[in-house]
């Protein structure tokens, strides 16, 4: 029986059929269709004309795409370390089993369950000139208010703040789960050795959750490369395109301008970037764990 189980049976493959069907229909087919579209001059409403790699050359020569690419890289470079650091900090602070920490865990995670529309509405109330929370505070302090949503540089910052607030819950929870897996005897040994908290953090805690830190980083890189809703609703990509991310460029090209082939080409380029990040995640997650003495 056990031998038979190990050898497997072709009929067992049927068990994965439902998932495989969903995967092929919802992921694999659209992916290959999108590649096909990217090689055609096509809109949303009919067959296109094969144009080879023209859409790719048009995308790569488009200054708006290059600006959106730079914006996205900058956004990922700033938001991901912030999310990882803040998530880790909160997890460390809340890694206790008291009522207060349970309350704060729920509180910090609660923003993650909101829709992007609600999140951006909340942050619009914070940033909007005249009646927004920050302008009112600036006014009380006698400072010149900043138009966060319509000033180059600040607009992407505002989108980043809303994003960090919205996305912080997941990293915090992943870190908390990892922290709770660290054997207590390591901390007891450190206490017997009279190790300082800083030394315990560097020598026990961080090495023990190193793979989770990497995992969270890569998940966040993949997620933040797909920034769209916050930028569209808060700044509409402005001013001067300084907060337009790649996904918004794809949306505008494909759906507003009906240039679906060019939009598909841009989305393939974004796919390549995200694929690289996912491959890094795969390599790290399949690496053999270090043997702990």
């Amino acid at each position: 029986m056990a031998e038979s189980y190990r050898r497997g049976h072709p009929g067992h493959a049927l068990f994965i059929l439902p998932y495989l069907t969903a995967f092929v229909v919802l992921l694999a087919f659209p992916l290959f269709w999108s590649i096909w579209l990217s090689l055609h001059k096509v809109d949303l409403f009919g067959p296109g004309r094969f144009v080879g790699l023209t859409n790719y050359t048009r995308v790569l020569a488009d200054p708006v795409f290059l600006q959106a690419f730079r914006n996205t890289i900058l956004f990922v470079a700033l938001s991901v370390p912030t999310l990882v650091a803040l998530g880790l900090f909160l997890a460390l602070a809340l890694n206790r089993t008291t009522r207060t920490t349970s309350f704060f865990r729920g509180l910090f995670f609660s923003s993650s369950v909101l829709s992007v529309t609600i999140v951006t509405l909340i942050w619009r109330f914070v940033f909007i000139p005249r009646d927004g929370l920050i302008p009112v505070i600036f006014e009380q302090l006698g400072l010149q208010p900043i138009n966060f949503l319509s000033t180059s540089g600040w607009s992407l910052f505002a989108v980043g703040v809303a994003t960090v607030w919205w996305c912080l819950g997941l990293p915090m929870m992943l870190f908390l789960a990892a922290l709770q897996q660290i054997p207590a005897d390591l901390y007891e040994a450190a206490a017997l050795d009279n190790a300082s908290p800083w030394r315990v953090l560097r020598r026990i805690t961080l090495p023990s959750i190193a793979r989770t830190i990497m995992l969270v980083t890569i998940i966040q890189i993949v997620m933040q490369f797909q920034l769209f809703g916050q930028a569209q609703l808060m700044t509409n990509g402005g001013p001067n395109g300084t907060s337009r991310p790649l996904v918004m460029y794809i949306y505008e090209t494909g759906f507003i301008r009906w240039d679906v082939g060019k939009g598909a080409a841009a989305s393939e380029l974004l796919f390549l970037i995200i694929l690289c990040a996912a491959m890094v995640q795969y390599i790290i997650s399949t690496r053999k764990p270090e043997v702990r003495e």
């Binding site: 619009r124 909007i128 000139p129 005249r130 009646d131 138009n147 949503l149 319509s150 000033t151």
Partner: peptide, 13 residues
Amino acid sequence: TTPGLDYAAAVSA
């Protein structure tokens, strides 16, 4: 002009 107002803010302003 008022600076930096979006549609809703401009209407209420």
